[in-house]
Design a protein around this nucleic acid. Structure first.
Lengths: 251, 251
DNA sequence: ACCTGAACACCGTTCAAGT
DNA sequence: ACCTGAACACCGTTCAAGT
């Protein structure tokens, strides 16, 4: 290609998403992305300060696309379930971005759309405004964990996967009945973690939502806007815990 | 050092665990492990076919150590909760191994001990033998996802963390009230995913266990002569358990 | 028989030098 | 002003050559 084109940030992110979708294993790299764009990796560092920042932005674009096909329907539990499944499916095609999302979260428009819809659904649940932030946190933690871990399974190479399955079979089917009686007893019916993930996702989330529903005080189910913020959640205590580095992240 | 020592597989794994525990960021590598052992990275490929296989084995050792400080107590739900918390805490000191565990599972004695205890606890729940494998699968998926994702948060570098926190603040506090009314409304009380993880872990797991309990058919809760051995694990010593050294991940 | 130096084919990131 | 070739400091893995 003779033409020297200057790529926009959006074009770079789209190319990144495309490369992530089609790269067979976990073989995404800044250099390969640059090569796919016909330029040098150093050029990309004008748009992004690091690979992480690039991937964060790409993950947010995935959320944006996921919300594009989402329409709120049904009661609050159905809305949250449908929302979560949309996000799950969107990341299913780019598992590596799901991993980044779980580790670093994202913070663009896509992320905000997801947060907004989940909060609106919770507001329709009958929970008081004081209860919602904590419940929101639990649901977000659960959904992000399930999606990211499921996606993690999608990043193992075929060779590693087969090797792991063989180890699993040996560990379960070969368990000594003297030492592992229950394991030996159930050996034939124990399934590896990667199986049946969608059903597991829905069931686990449903259990969490049912748990929340059971705690809703029997007042009117859908109150309109209540007063602004009298929330007196203790916000600071948790932020500093022992080890001075390694910190968690936002949604 | 003049002395050329031949390292055993166990010594290598212990050194790997130590290096993972003390490596500031996610800077573990085969080469660094070899350097720590005073040898060349190529030597390690006599013991392990790949880095993944090495990490898998190291993860299993972590599970083994976690089970060392575990003692079954209380009803089936308490047993599963305590077991899960033990595993969580063990991996909290080696977050990168938790990530490997979530992706590749593990299949040695440590893994078997965990599976065995969880199955024994489920057998004490009153669930029928036919129901147990599916319930086991759900619990395993949930616990692995929560632990792996929490650990993933522990592998971000301080710089990335701070950058992510800033993005989160902007995304939440800077949300346009016209477009994101609920988000703007709750902005001050929405907390990042990495906060309050232990409480979230316990709550989410408790919801799942309650969900299972509600499905137990009303027969006798703990059949006395049900299985050959309801034997508790025959191990002793509370060794190092938890409190002594570093804290696990975020709280 | 055992080990290892050197190499291969990669990384993310930086920056001086080019246009 | 913008871009990029070349370099830096790393990776995981292999294998011919040494002892």
């Amino acid at each position: 290609m003779a033409g020297r084109k200057r790529w926009s940030t959006e074009e770079i992110l789209d190319a990144a998403a495309e490369l992530l979708r089609t790269s067979d294993a976990d073989s995404f790299s800044v250099r390969k992305l640059a090569a796919a764009l016909g330029t040098d990796s150093s050029s990309l560092y004008r748009h992004f300060r690091s690979k992480t920042e690039l991937l964060r932005a790409a993950a947010d674009r995935i959320l944006l696309a996921a919300m594009d096909g989402y329409r709120p329907e049904g009661d609050w539990k159905q809305r949250i379930t449908s929302l979560a499944l949309h996000v799950r499916e969107a990341f299913g095609r780019q598992p590596q971005l799901a991993a980044v999302w779980g580790r670093h979260a994202s913070s663009g428009t896509g992320s905000r759309l997801v947060m907004e819809e989940m909060l609106q659904a919770l507001r329709a649940s009958g929970l008081s405004d004081e209860e919602i932030p904590a419940r929101y946190h639990r649901i977000a933690v659960l959904v992000a964990a399930l999606i990211a871990s499921e996606a993690g399974l999608g990043t193992v190479t075929p060779g590693e996967y087969e090797q792991g399955m063989e180890l699993f079979r040996v560990a379960v089917l070969g368990a000594d009945p003297e030492r592992f009686p229950a394991l030996a007893h159930f050996a034939r019916d124990i399934r590896p973690l990667g199986v049946d993930r969608r059903a597991a996702f829905e069931e686990i989330l449903a259990a969490q939502l049912a748990h929340i529903e059971a705690a809703i005080s029997p007042s009117q189910p859908t109150g309109p806007g209540v007063s602004a913020n009298d929330g007196e959640l203790e916000r600071s205590a948790h932020h500093r815990c022992s080890e001075g580095r390694r910190r968690p992240l936002p949604t």
